[in-house]
Design a protein around this nucleic acid. Sequence first.
DNA 1: TAAATTTGGGACAAATTAGTCTTAATTTAA
DNA 2: TTAAATTAAGACTAATTTGTCCCAAATTTA
Lengths: 143, 143
Amino acid sequence: MRALSKATIYCLRALMYVASKNEQNNYVSIGEISDELDISFHFLTKTFQTLNQHGLLESHRGPHGGIILKKASKDIYLIDIVHILEGADFFDKCLLGLPGCGEREPCPVHNFWKNVKGNLQLEFRKTSLQHLAKAINTGKMRL
Amino acid sequence: MRALSKATIYCLRALMYVASKNEQNNYVSIGEISDELDISFHFLTKTFQTLNQHGLLESHRGPHGGIILKKASKDIYLIDIVHILEGADFFDKCLLGLPGCGEREPCPVHNFWKNVKGNLQLEFRKTSLQHLAKAINTGKMRL
DNA sequence: TAAATTTGGGACAAATTAGTCTTAATTTAA
DNA sequence: TTAAATTAAGACTAATTTGTCCCAAATTTA
């Protein structure tokens, strides 16, 4: 099951990486991220621009340039990134893609899909970049 | 979030439709299914062939031909269809697409994703076509 | 047997997603 | 002020998924 697009996956990993470096006032270059995480540089640059436009991060050109989180990593949640890149309706979609599927006119799998989506959304809503950065730095989790 | 390919979605809806008609020994024509559910006829024909090859259904050409479930609808579970069309590893994939992600070397979101996948898999495993066909026939659920 | 109906199968086209490349603009620092 | 470093932006290519079309093969029925 692939729930997320590559663009979203790359950005999640990238921002976890940035958060795990925990550099308060330094830009992290896209080249470094791309090298460390083995992600296409140009693709990453492009998707970062979207996060940029939505005010999640800030970029700077020239030597020592790069990107930086605009808020503290404890205040950025996975759901923020997902909403920007996949759309605000990411957790609203019918499993069978039926338009108008909902409580009033449910598809045959509406109820259990609603539960599954609810669980996932909750996790994305309560998991911050800081939380994951700690897990990366203290232990055995890898990007 | 789109968890399933169109091919899978179409087949799920199609087989729910067939099951809901509950015709024991009659073939249901692909043309009828395609008309009723507004799915491309040729696309449906093609994906049915895959289910065919895996022994989930049987087809017959000529007048009054069509497809028929090879087992009773109470013995066909959603997971059977998903496994054939999406692959047996459908529920094994890392949310971040990292190869080798698992208990020993988890990615930062491994644990909660494991739970979400587990819930979904359980539902697919215990939900039969008959179960859904009943919901369709008795009530307000639509395809 | 001939005509009508229906699936089989492959080639092809369109749409979407993913990835590459080139050039421009900006910034730093020697 | 010039060179180097770095992101911005858009064109282009590749891969994958989705959808269309045509004709062949099989089956039924008149």
